[in-house]
Design a protein around this nucleic acid. Structure first.
Lengths: 341, 341
DNA sequence: CATCGGACAGCAAACGTTTGCTTCTTTTGC
DNA sequence: GCAAAAGAAGCAAACGTTTGCTGTCCGATG
């Protein structure tokens, strides 16, 4: 735990500490003579000097740290997202302070306080829900924010998102073109823009074909496997005249729905086709593999990080809002269905 | 972005900044008169003061930040692990700086440098592989380390792990008791203690029953789904006299194996039973559900965080090494198998 | 009544960098 | 050959907290 600071390096190289500071900073290395710079660098290497980023952050007002807030680390969708963020930061000497909110308002609030107090240079919030507007706007006065994945329209915060409405329409079109006329959806919590978008797109497209979408209650709390199972059971309980296809607002709920069908002795896709959302890796390996809408997590992470970095460097942009397109990935959970009766 | 510092609060409350510092610190709040303390707190609230953790960290030499290094954010096992860490830190005002190594030595090295430079109070390393010893020992001179999940025996670093050897034996016993006599295993990379332990336990127990374990090559690189599929294909290619049961060193590889069987038109468990490792949530929902060894991720995370905190507070303990027990979770991938021919 | 000690709050020096300014030396241009 | 400019390195003041020490006031004690 020996502390090697600029002082030690300076003494060892026989120069002033400010010279060391400059010599070791690639940006301002030019300010010092080549010869001395080499001498200083050699001394630093020899002593094993490592810059104290805390002191540097205090003085510079930049910590080279980005906060990343996600709703659920257990949701496999966020792994590529975070990897996208990290990979983008990697080469720039930045690092991510990650936190999970578990979709809890209080937790979000505490997490933001932490990040502000730790002087993160910016925060990527991938866990915004409606109801968070006030909190986020207040946070934004202290620290630059970038929304990712989920949008919060009208909050005046730059965002890197995805066209959920279009995704919902894609799902609807796919089902319609395969001959489905009785459909249902498992709706994620409505305080999340993504789910609202998916629901809206799906219902609208269905309505255009004169089809009414049936819905059990919305997911209460977090839209995970267990919740999908519960909702699907509820849907199956109203058993007369079951729909022939189901749109689940994420893959986790689709898995749950699949399980509920299994428990009832129903077969997917013969009794009911299923479309999920996110293209979680696992969807390719369930029985049957699940048709899903691909949400480009890695790219979203990368672009969110890029936006955040640019906001830090160039100040708040003209409220940039990016939106990546969805893509349908057809698999057996819809392809093997054929109309009966 | 207004800066409210101790100075502003002090001016507003009409006291000296050191008094404010004390009044706002729960630990030393007693040093200031109740009345003034309330006045100061009111002033702080009114101005929306938030302590600058960077300045505090510099002065105190404690950043209230813990580094957490995992190999793969995409491996669902690490979600509960990280949640365990976070939940333990939550109430203590600590926060996790997370990073992913993707099982790359260079990346680990860079990540550690970052964490040291950022003056993390300690680092939890869940991504240790043999070959990392030197690197980790050197890092340990600068920052307290705690190994988690994977052990590095002899490196002299406290660790919170799990009895992988016992887990391997459990898998073996389960298969033996169900009548299997021809078995194989998909071995994870041998530079990871966990996989070596699992392999050893499995092989030893099998040998005790006079059974030889067949193995295709080890997983090259990261033991993920794709790799499991590749190895399983290789195993199936030597098609004469197939084993009746397979032990995959993690669930991801088990999924891949399952897929490879499907592609060959083989059925699990009828043609081959499978045991995985980790009890990843998904194992309950594949077809068939996969028998697996439960590795208590959440608890490991919690205890690793606890150990790290105690190392920070009380100095390096007498090299604590904890090991949690594994547990077999039986599911259809082995239960529905029956001996044929 | 003098003194002691406790309670409270202010003072100022750190923590390790960065950076505007100053100073000194060397080079350049005329 | 001299003034001006450029080049290089040192000086010292920040950044916002924390904390050992000092000083002041007051009530209690002998």
């Amino acid at each position: 735990m020996s502390k090697v600071t600029l002082r030690e390096v300076a003494a060892h190289a026989g120069v002033h500490i400010s010279t060391v500071s400059r010599a070791l900073d690639p940006e301002r290395g030019a300010l010092v003579n080549d010869q001395t710079r080499n001498r200083v660098r050699a001394a630093a290497d020899e002593l094993g000097y490592q810059r104290n980023a805390v002191a540097s952050g205090l003085r510079r007002g930049r910590t080279q740290t980005l906060g990343v807030v996600v709703p659920d680390l257990g949701n496999p969708f966020y792994a590529p997202f975070m990897r996208g963020v990290e990979n983008h930061l990697e080469g720039r000497g930045l690092m991510a302070l990650m936190a999970e909110t578990q979709d809890d308002h209080g937790r979000l609030s505490r997490v933001l306080d932490h990040l502000i107090s730790r002087q993160a240079d910016a925060v990527i919030v991938a866990s915004a829900r409606s109801g968070d507007e006030r909190l986020l706007r207040k946070a934004q006065e202290q620290i630059p924010l970038v929304l990712a994945v989920r949008h919060l329209p009208g909050a005046g915060i730059p965002a890197v998102t995805h066209d959920d409405e279009r995704g919902g329409r894609l799902a609807a079109e796919h089902l319609i073109s395969h001959g489905h006329r009785r459909v249902a959806q498992l709706h994620g919590p409505r305080d999340v823009s993504s789910f609202r978008g998916r629901g809206r797109g799906f219902v609208d497209r269905m309505r255009e074909s004169g089809i009414t979408v049936r819905e059990p209650d919305d997911a209460a709390g977090r839209p995970r496997l267990e919740e999908g199972r519960r909702l699907m059971k509820q849907l199956l309980a109203e058993s007369d005249d079951l729909p022939t296809a189901l749109f689940a607002h994420n893959d986790l709920m689709a898995f749950g729905a699949l399980q509920a069908m299994g428990e009832r002795g129903l077969s997917c896709p013969l009794d009911m086709a299923i479309v999920g959302y996110n293209d979680t890796p696992m969807t390719a390996f369930t029985d049957p593999p699940i048709t899903t809408i691909r949400l480009p997590g890695y790219e979203l992470g990368r672009m969110a990080a890029d936006t955040a970095v640019s906001v830090v460097e160039n100040g708040p942009d003209e409220l940039k809002v990016l939106s990546l397109p969805p893509e349908l990935v057809p698999r057996d959970s819809t392809l093997r269905w054929t109309r009966r009766g």
